[in-house]
Nucleic acid binder design. Structure first.
Lengths: 345, 345
DNA sequence: ATGAAAGCGCTAACAC
DNA sequence: GTGTTAGCGCTTTCAT
């Protein structure tokens, strides 16, 4: 059946071929148990012979479901990043872990995960895409504090789960790591190593995660009777280099640095060593994430582990229950971080 | 209209609201010109008032189109990579450039681009997804030589364009860079610098692009009367480090290295310098891609530029014409590379 | 320029 | 356990 027929075979054609009704074929396709085993085999042969594939649009029109959900990575506006959005997304192992974790949960459910990268010019498309019912719901990653997307989606009635605490209060499920606990672990570790001149390289301070980590850093450092310092970075490797350079210039005496993600920590590590300082003896460095980048650092990076895969899996689960029971009030889940000690601190 | 109605408004409801027929509303929605301007405004008001959004499934059922295409990144089997597929995909800036280039073309056409990462466990899902008509066609990235996916898709009648020369001859459009020309530029440059002991770090040798670059390297080096050497890498940064370590052990006299992509070149650069060799004076290093990673290398990387964004744009264009005119024979387009000289060679 | 009506391919009641 | 039937929401002839 090397289909040169202009149109693909339909349920009806399969039914005719098998000498049964459309309903029976439909039942076989959908795995309904109440079908005579013999008839089922007849139908299955007919399906194979005709090369039949269900038409999704038709099914979706009647069921109202699409069995696919979107993983949306959104950036509300172009800030002064040196690297374009798409490059950043495809340079940080973070997204890969999210995808893997979500797929793990979705795959057994027969749900497709489609990835959607929404930089500013893509946003109108994204909204259309989601409103049109291409997907049953969305996992939303990122979110600068003033990202309007979460609100818009809720208003549109699209089931959504966020990847971290929303910037503004919205009635919405989210999953996050206990940022404060994680940062405190890092700071305590630095203090335990006897470091007294502590600084942090932050993420973009318009992102909730970056804000949380900075606030937690400052409080934890003060709790040790020390004076916190910080430089703003942008979560990229080269941003980490730049920030470290600035930090070492402004505060040459720093002996412990908490970097808000592993990618920047990698960059910072390089710069610290280029300036002739030994890691970890003269300057200890701790990252955040425990992504693959942490292992590729020289020396291997001590870092605060986020269970990203698990978190993404939980997001998927929250979303599925939200899709199934839209009126239930949103739940959120906070995960525990863990300090992974390697060679950099 | 904060829709607490269980079902979203339909065309019919808009028509009733506006006091016209469904056909007229449909025309307004689809921008058909033959509509009285006044009526059009009435309809537009009705659309706004009801908060109407077209139902994609219904439209798609009748038009047979979905106005979205998939960007599929496929890996046929798990080879012995040290890094998992998803991590690799989200660590190499390559995919981001592909996405950007494709979006550039697709966006003005109102076509959505959805990304689909297909590691081995996801493949059955992918096939179902594509067969079911979720998308009008697919841009297929990657392809190990024995990837069955291109063939399967062609057989299924899914319009496809490949990102590089297919491993096996298939009647299929593809876009590629002139690998031979690019590699020759790199080798000629090394020779011009007086390097006589040349080696290459290759990609996984089951990928056509890696094979092409190795073959081209060997021929170009021999053309200079020199003896080519090679070590197999895996296109990742840490793979580049490992390969470079092996290379320097086996051939301590190497003074020029062509690395099959920028990411591995970054790793190689690090290792070369760790062993006390100066770059470029003692060892010259040239990469391939001219991705953002090239600029972040220390020193900045001399590399062979692939116009990835343009190539992806061309892929999108080829795919769209293939979708519109399925019977036309597939066309392929080869792009010219360019040597970007920076500090590493 | 507008409306009426015929499906697109499928699922889900409902009858048998 | 199987078939019949009524739509799902939209586009698109075909009349008017």
């Amino acid at each position: 059946m090397t289909g040169s027929d202009s149109r693909p075979p339909t349920l009806e054609q399969v039914a005719n071929y098998a000498g049964v009704s459309r309903a029976t074929v439909s039942r076989v396709i959908n795995g309904v148990q109440t079908v005579d085993p013999e008839l089922r085999r007849t139908v299955e042969r007919a399906i194979a012979a005709t090369g039949y594939v269900p038409n999704l649009a038709a099914r979706s029109l009647v069921t109202g479901r699409t069995d696919s959900i979107a993983l949306v990575v959104s950036e509300p506006e172009n800030r002064g990043y040196s690297t374009p959005f798409l490059t950043r997304m495809f340079t940080d192992p973070f997204l890969g872990r999210i995808t893997a974790g979500a797929q793990e949960v979705l795959r057994p459910l027969g749900i497709h995960l489609v990835i959607f990268l929404a930089d500013p010019p893509a946003r109108p498309h994204l909204l259309r895409y989601l409103r049109q019912g291409h997907v049953d719901g969305a996992l939303l990653i990122s979110s600068h504090v003033d990202d309007p997307l979460p609100g818009q989606l809720v208003e549109l009635g699209v089931p959504v789960v966020l990847s971290c605490r929303p910037g503004h209060p919205v009635t919405i499920s989210y999953v996050d790591v206990d940022q404060w606990a994680g940062v405190r672990m890092a700071v305590d570790h630095l203090a335990r190593l006897g470091r007294r001149s502590l600084a942090t390289i932050t993420g973009p301070l318009d992102m909730p995660a970056a804000q949380d980590r900075l606030a937690a850093f400052e409080q934890s450092v003060r709790a040790h009777g020390l004076e916190p310092r910080h430089v703003e970075g942008d979560f990229t490797r080269s941003g980490g280099e730049r920030a470290a350079r600035r930090l070492l210039t402004e505060h040459a005496d720093v002996d412990g640095i908490f970097v808000a993600n592993d990618l920047m920590a990698d960059g910072a590590l390089r710069v610290v060593q280029e300036t002739g300082r030994k890691v970890p003896d003269e300057v200890a460095v701790i990252g955040f994430d425990d992504s693959t980048a942490a292992l590729e650092c020289h020396p291997p990076l001590t870092t605060v582990r986020q269970p990203v895969e698990e978190m993404a899996g939980e997001m998927a689960q929250l979303l599925m229950t939200r899709i199934r029971e839209p009126q239930r009030t949103p739940r959120s889940v906070i995960f525990n971080p863990e300090l992974i000690v390697r060679a950099s601190a």
